[in-house]
């Protein structure tokens, strides 16, 4: 396990190995997102209360799930960067932050577009929306700190510490709808109960969530490869790679 970890942790090995996965991941992403979007937007049933507006769910929910889980992934990378000092982990934190910020922004924007016709407002300072906005600021903060700290030996430590400290926002987002009165409704999916929607609705949603995960992995790997090349541009293997 640790050996595998160390092998992937070397920038060169990561670059060469991830290159082979890319076409497969790209195909999978394309298929999942196409199937999910067409299924969700055209064929899934409308809702008895919300009508066709419910279809915003097929983008909003995956974006919100990805926003939170990408933060968790970024924090894991930050922990590895701080404790084990793997160079690739620091690059992973740096490249995950803008992608996570994008996902959070997408979740906030689609939620806003959904909120206006259903609730009657684009925005309200309830606990769920506010904690999600804080998540966005955390991503931006990590990104700004990491960009400001250069490439030295201890660079990126502040960004990694912020990423780890920000972890405590995740349970707040998750349980905000249960702990406090909010305008946002509680979760439709729980571990203990059946989904609060029929299979014709949650199946396309599941496909979209998987598609978003694949897209995120693809975008993260692509950015990470670019970052690795830039950081290792003076090393022998990159020189050999770029000059035939």
């Amino acid at each position: 396990m640790l050996r595998w970890f160390h092998e992937w942790g070397s920038p060169k090995a990561f670059y060469l190995r991830s290159g082979k996965m890319l076409p497969w991941l790209a195909c999978l992403t394309l298929v999942l997102l196409t199937v999910g979007l067409v299924w969700g937007l055209l064929f899934a049933p409308s809702d008895y209360q919300q009508g066709e507006s419910v279809r915003i769910m097929y983008v909003h929910v995956p974006a919100a799930i990805l926003a939170q889980s990408s933060y968790a992934m970024m924090a894991i990378a930050a922990l590895i960067a701080l404790v084990w000092r793997l160079k690739i982990a620091d690059a992973a934190v740096q490249t995950a932050a803008p992608l996570g910020a994008m996902m959070t922004l997408l979740a906030l924007a689609t939620g806003s577009l959904w909120g206006k016709p259903m609730w009657g407002t684009f925005w309200i300072w309830d606990a769920r929306l506010t904690s999600t906005l804080i998540l966005f600021f955390l991503f931006v903060g990590v990104l700004a700190l990491r960009s400001a700290s250069g490439q030295g030996r201890n660079a990126g430590r502040a960004a990694s510490v912020l990423a780890l400290v920000g972890l405590i926002n995740l349970p707040v987002i998750k349980y905000s709808v249960d702990w406090w009165f909010t305008l946002h409704q509680p979760a439709s999916f729980t571990l203990t109960e059946r989904p609060a929607m029929p299979v014709e609705m949650w199946a396309p949603l599941l496909v979209m969530v998987l598609g978003f995960y694949c897209w995120f992995a693809l975008a993260w790997i692509l950015r990470l490869r670019l970052e690795v090349l830039q950081r290792e541009r003076r090393s022998e293997w990159v020189q050999r790679l770029v000059s035939p």
Partner: peptide, 18 residues
């Protein structure tokens, strides 16, 4: 001065609701 609608977490097709 302002009324906002709050809905629950349940979704279902109109036919099922009927």
């Amino acid at each position: 001065e302002e009324i906002l609608a709050k809905h629950d977490e349940k979704y279902m097709p109109p036919e099922v609701a009927m």
